[in-house]
C-alpha cells in the first residue's frame, strides 16, 4: 500500500537525512521508496521538507500528493508544508503550535513529541532528526524498527555512531511512552 510521509523542519535540522534514512530503511526492508525534497528560497535556516513515498510495489508518481503521515519540527515548515495531512501528525511541541483545523480534524492521530528537548539532553541538537525517527518508528509502524535503526547506523559517520544509536533509542522510548499514555 502506498504511504506518503512528509518530514518538515528548518535547514540544518537534519530533515533531508531523516528522509533519506527512511527511504534507505525501506530498501533494507525490501520495500520501494522515493524521496524528494522541497526547499524554501534559501538553502539554510529556512523551511525544508523531505517527502518520502513508501510502497510494496514500484512507485509511479514519486512526489507526495497528500501526506498520510507528517512529522513537523518547525513552525514555518508546519504552516507551509502541512496544510493537509490524512492520518498521523507528529510534531515537536516545543517548536510547533498546531492549527485549530488539525486539532478538530476527525480521525487524525496527533502526537506531540519532544525530540528537540531530548536531543538537547543528549548534548547535540543535531540529533533531533534521529530522535524523531525513533518516535515515528513506534508511533506509526510504517517500517520495521530494525530496518530504520540499521539505516540510521549506515547513514551517519562512524564517529557519530554511538550518539545516533542513543538518540534513536531515546526516540523509541519516547514513542512508547506516548503510545502507553494514549492507551491509558
Amino acid at each position: 500500500m502506498r504511504q506518503e510521509i512528509r518530514l518538515g523542519g528548518f535547514g540544518g535540522q537534519g530533515i533531508m537525512l531523516a528522509g533519506f534514512i527512511l527511504g534507505r530503511a525501506a530498501i533494507l526492508a525490501g520495500k520501494h521508496a522515493t524521496m524528494t525534497q522541497s526547499y524554501g528560497p534559501e538553502i539554510r535556516g529556512a523551511r525544508v521538507a523531505a517527502d518520502v513515498v513508501l510502497d510494496d510495489h514500484p512507485i509511479d508518481y514519486p512526489k507526495v500528493i497528500r501526506p498520510d503521515i507528517a512529522v513537523m519540527l518547525f513552525q514555518e515548515a508546519y504552516d507551509y508544508y502541512c496544510r493537509d495531512v490524512a492520518r498521523v501528525l507528529v510534531y515537536d511541541e516545543d517548536l510547533v503550535r498546531l492549527d485549530k483545523k488539525h486539532l478538530e480534524q476527525e480521525g487524525l492521530q496527533i502526537y506531540p513529541i519532544r525530540a528537540h528537548r531530548i536531543a538537547e539532553e543528549l548534548g547535540k541538537r543535531v540529533v533531533t532528526n534521529i530522535v524523531s525517527l525513533g518516535a515515528l518508528a513506534v508511533l506509526t509502524n510504517v517500517l520495521p524498527v530494525e530496518a530504520i535503526e540499521e539505516a540510521v547506523l549506515r547513514s551517519v559517520p562512524p564517529k557519530a555512531l554511538e550518539l545516533n544509536r542513543e538518540a534513536f533509542q531515546r526516540g523509541l522510548e519516547h514513542g512508547r511512552t506516548l503510545v502507553e499514555a494514549r492507551v491509558a
Partner: peptide, 16 residues
C-alpha cells in the same frame, strides 16, 4: 551516503 545532502551528513558527523 546522502552525498548531495552534505550539510546534514556533515553536521551529524561534525557534532560528534
Amino acid at each position: 551516503g546522502p552525498e548531495s545532502k552534505r550539510d546534514q551528513a556533515q553536521a551529524q558527523g561534525g557534532a560528534a
